[in-house]
Design a protein around this nucleic acid. Structure first.
Length: 388
RNA sequence: GUGGCUGUAGCUCAGUUGGUUAGAGCAUCAGAUUGUGGUUCUGAGGGUCGUGGGUUCGAAACCCAUUAGCCACC
C-alpha cells in the first residue's frame, strides 16, 4: 500500500459504523468532518454553482435538513472563478454554508456540457459552455482548484463514459482514469487546504457495465488508502438491474470501514436498492431539476403536478411530508404556480422533493438501526414507483 | 361618405403562377429527464381558411357581394 505521509499526519475524516444490517449489506454510520457530522445513509442536495437552486440555506437546514451539499468544480472554476473564491476564503465562507460540502471534480461536466473537448493523456481541453473560452483540466489542476474551493470531500478527475460504451473503450478509458488517479493523489499529497480544514480525496471506481473491469477498478483504487470511495459511471443509460449488479461487484471489494458514494443516483427506488447493497452516500439532480419541472416524489408515489387533474384539488401537496410547504400549499395552487412559470413553484417543489429525499434516507437509517430495513424497504419500493 | 390594406389553430403569422390529407412558433394536453445551462427532448389534441354566392375537373388563393378591424382623404 502506498502512503501519503503529509496527509496521514493530519486530522482525517472519521467514519464510524454503527450498524450493519443482518439481511442485507445496508449500513448506518456517522462521518465526521471539520464542518460537522453526517449521518449515513445520506442524500446530498446538488448545489452546482454554490447554490441549491431556489432553496435558501435556512430552508436547506431547517426544512430539508441537509447535512452536506455538493458544489461543482467545473462550474465554480468558470464562474465566479478561482480568484474570487480564494479571496472570499473558500466556498463555505463565500456562500455562508458552514456545514460539509463535497465538490465533484468536473470530469462529468467536461463531457456532458463543454464543447470541443479533446482528451489527451495530459488531461482534457474544452470550451466553456458559457462563453466558448478554451480551458484545460488536468488531474493536478482539478485538485488545485478543489483546494481553492475548499470542500470537505473532493473528487478525483475521471472520465465518465456512456452506459453504451464498448468493452474496448471502457477498458481504455478506465486505464487512463487510473493513471489520472495516481496524479490526483500525488498532487493531493503535495498540497493542503488554504483554509486550515481537512479535505478528503475520494477516488472513483469506473469500468462501465463490465463486471471484471469494475472489480479491477475497485481493487486498484484501494492502494491510495483513501478516506472514502465513489462508484461513478452508473445511471448513464444502462438498465437499473445492471446498475445494481455493478454496485454489488464494487461493494464486495471496496473496504467496509470507509464510506461508499454512488455518484449521480438517483430515483428513490434506486437509492433504497443501493443502500441495501451497502452504499452510504448519494447525490442527484432529480429532486431539484425534476421538481422545477413539476415532478413531486412522495411516500405514496410520484405526482406530475402539471397534470390537469390537480387543477381543482385543494388538498395539501403532501399530507405526510416533513416540510412546511407540504401542508401550507395545495396541489391546485402549486399546479397554478408551475403552469404560470412562477419561480415560487420551483422553490416549493425543490424544498418538498429534497425534504422527501432526506426523509427517505433518514428512515432507511432508522430501520437499519432498528434491524428491520429489508422488510421496510420492500414495502417502500412497492409504493415509490406508483404514479399518482 | 369615398379609397386602400387586412381577416388562415387559443395567440402571432407562413401558405409558390389555383393542384393530394392547409403548416410553423408560442399556448394547451400528455410522456421523458439520474456526478444541474432556471433546461432540453418526444408525442398528442386543436382550423366549415370572416360570411354568402360564383368561376373551375379542382379555390385559403381568382371574381362578386357582404361583414369586422385598421389607415388615408372628404
Amino acid at each position: 500500500m502506498r502512503l501519503y505521509p503529509e496527509n496521514s499526519n493530519k486530522k482525517q475524516m472519521q467514519f464510524t459504523l454503527e450498524q450493519t444490517d443482518t439481511l442485507s449489506h445496508a449500513r448506518a454510520a456517522t462521518m465526521t468532518t471539520d464542518h460537522g457530522q453526517i449521518q449515513t445513509p445520506i442524500f446530498m442536495p446538488v448545489g452546482t454553482v454554490g447554490s441549491v437552486k431556489g432553496v435558501l440555506h435556512r430552508d436547506l437546514e431547517q426544512q430539508v435538513r441537509a447535512q452536506i451539499i455538493l458544489g461543482n468544480t467545473y462550474h465554480l472554476y468558470l464562474r465566479p472563478g478561482l480568484e474570487v473564491l480564494r479571496e472570499a476564503g473558500g466556498l463555505h465562507r463565500f456562500s455562508s454554508w458552514d456545514h460539509p460540502i463535497l465538490t465533484d471534480s468536473g470530469g462529468f461536466q467536461v463531457f456532458s456540457l463543454a464543447s470541443q473537448r479533446k482528451l489527451t493523456e495530459q488531461g482534457c481541453h474544452f470550451s466553456s459552455h458559457i462563453d466558448g473560452s478554451k480551458h484545460l483540466f488536468t488531474p493536478e489542476s482539478v485538485i488545485d482548484t478543489q483546494r481553492i474551493i475548499g470542500a470537505d470531500i473532493i473528487m478525483a478527475f475521471d472520465e465518465c463514459p456512456p452506459g453504451t460504451a464498448s468493452r474496448d473503450y471502457a477498458a481504455q478509458s478506465w486505464e487512463r482514469t487510473s493513471r489520472w488517479l495516481e496524479r490526483c493523489f500525488e498532487q493531493y499529497s503535495r498540497t493542503e487546504s488554504p483554509y486550515g480544514h481537512h479535505q478528503s480525496l475520494f477516488p472513483i471506481v469506473q469500468g462501465c457495465t463490465y463486471a471484471d473491469l469494475r472489480a479491477r477498478s475497485a481493487e486498484f483504487v484501494q492502494q491510495f488508502g483513501a478516506q472514502g470511495y465513489a462508484i461513478g459511471g452508473l445511471a448513464v443509460g444502462e438498465p437499473a438491474p445492471v446498475m445494481y449488479e455493478m454496485i454489488e461487484v464494487c461493494n464486495a471489494i471496496l473496504p467496509k470501514d470507509r464510506p461508499r458514494y454512488l455518484m449521480g443516483v438517483g430515483t428513490p427506488i434506486n437509492i433504497l436498492e443501493a443502500i441495501e447493497r451497502g452504499v452510504d452516500m448519494f447525490d442527484c439532480v432529480m429532486p431539484t431539476r425534476n421538481g422545477r419541472n413539476g415532478m413531486l416524489f412522495t411516500s405514496e408515489g410520484i405526482i406530475n403536478i402539471r397534470n390537469q387533474k390537480w387543477q381543482h384539488d385543494f388538498s395539501p401537496i403532501d399530507p405526510n411530508g416533513t416540510a412546511y410547504v407540504d401542508t401550507v400549499y395545495s396541489k391546485g395552487y402549486l399546479r397554478h404556480l408551475n403552469i404560470a412559470g412562477e419561480m415560487l413553484a420551483a422553490q416549493i417543489a425543490s424544498i418538498h422533493n429534497l425534504a422527501f429525499y432526506l426523509w427517505l434516507v433518514e428512515q432507511a437509517r432508522l430501520h437499519i438501526l432498528a434491524g428491520d430495513f429489508k422488510s421496510w424497504k420492500d414495502v417502500m419500493v412497492e409504493k415509490l414507483g406508483r404514479r399518482l
